[in-house]
Simulated assay, not measured.
Amino acid sequence: MRSPFRLGIGFVAVLTAVACGVPASTAPPTETARPEPAALPARVTAASARQAGSDELGRIPVLMYHRIVDRPKSVYDRTPADFTAELERLAAEDYVPVTTADLLARRLDLPAGTHPVVLTFDDGDPSAFALTPQGQPAAGTAVRILLDVAAAHPRFRPVASLYVNENPFGGSDDGRALRWLAEHHFEIGNHTRRHTNLRSAPEGAVTSAIAEEDALIRQSVPGYRPTTLALPYGAHPRREELALHGPGYSYDGALLVGAGPAPSPCSREFEPGSIPRIRSQSTGPEAQYGSAHWLDVLASPKGRRYTSDGDPATVSYPRSEEAPAPACASAGLAY
């Protein structure tokens, strides 16, 4: 385990960023620009960075959800109460949601002392998102719950990444649900058209499974370009590069299934094509691999959690740690 951040003079190095912390005014791959984050502080000084305990090479929880149901049938299900409690915990512990696309593009423009978290939903289940006849997120769905929690905690951004197959959210193929998500700054990601196991599929079937779903998303949301893929079953194709690039598609990153926290996108350990996720789970079988366990670990003194310095133009980290990946910085200021 790497050394945890220690407060005090001389334990923070701040590097001028080239690609890490791109300001939030940079738009994601959709025609609608993403909202400006609320109440961001002015450029921080070295002293305030130390006070915030900044570590922008720390680890980031990428949480994986599937269904939000009253009666869970597997470790992949959460009740509405469980899901609400987890979001409330994240808000109370100063996490700020970002999308997978934000993570890969290093759009981590967060208030000082806060931590990014990525909320991901697989399979396009109606319990994750559905619209009422009036065009509003249905009560009890994950998106509705997220919006309600964000309303109570203004710094907790109501954004998430939803990975879909054909006919997402149990509706028709008119694209209304996907358009609503894009218009409200949620990320729409590819999960293959028919949830194909890319490891066992022939190469032609791999590229077709990804390209067909890519085309369906673009058809439903004109002008939208999906940039990330959630690998069904967490399985790479035998030729791993086909997860990101093939005939008819090109992606910036791919998500695994169950693991631990993800490295910072400025860490030399970060692999865009193999981003680990944490299954949302607090009790039951294999709970030691679930979100409650990992959030406890990250909150501990040795958890090495990503903590923002509040300045999108710098990368702050403990002086004792290895420098960021070359793409994140070109010059340094040591404090």
Rank of each mutant, 00 (worst) to 15 (best):
G21S: 04
A85M: 04
S48H: 03
D123F: 07
S200I: 00
Y317H: 14
Y251K: 05
A151E: 05
G10R: 09
P154T: 12
S25C: 11
I60W: 04
G246W: 00
L108P: 02
T32F: 12
P133K: 02
L255G: 00
A128L: 09
P35Q: 13
H191I: 10
Q136I: 03
I188W: 01
S274E: 10
A19K: 07
Y335K: 03
T227E: 14
R218M: 09
R78Q: 15
A152W: 03
L40V: 03
A47I: 08
A287C: 06
R277V: 08
S316T: 05
R50M: 14
P154D: 13
A209N: 05
H153S: 08
A128T: 13
F186S: 08
A292S: 13
E203M: 04
V98N: 04
Y76N: 12
R144P: 07
T26W: 06
R194C: 07
G171T: 08
S220H: 11
C20F: 14
A101F: 00
P158T: 12
L103K: 00
F156N: 02
T207D: 09
T26H: 10
A139I: 03
R319Y: 12
R319L: 14
E187D: 13
A17Q: 02
P263G: 11
F156H: 01
M1D: 15
V221F: 06
A38D: 09
A259L: 09
A160Y: 03
T228Y: 03
I188Q: 01
Y335N: 11
A329F: 06
D214I: 08
G284W: 04
P276F: 06
E203L: 06
G284A: 10
L178S: 06
P301A: 07
L147G: 11
V98P: 04
G234C: 12
A211R: 01
T307K: 00
R6W: 05
A230R: 00
S274W: 07
Y76G: 12
Q134P: 00
P133W: 03
A85F: 03
A92I: 04
A46T: 03
L255T: 01
L298T: 03
T100Q: 06
E322A: 15
V297M: 05
L103N: 01
R106L: 10
A46F: 04
R239N: 12
T314L: 14
H191D: 10
P23K: 02
R43A: 15
V221E: 04
D148H: 02
G10T: 13
A292Q: 12
L146M: 06
E31C: 14
P133F: 05
S316Y: 02
D94L: 07
S48Q: 13
Y289M: 11
A323W: 01
T30G: 15
P326L: 15
G171K: 00
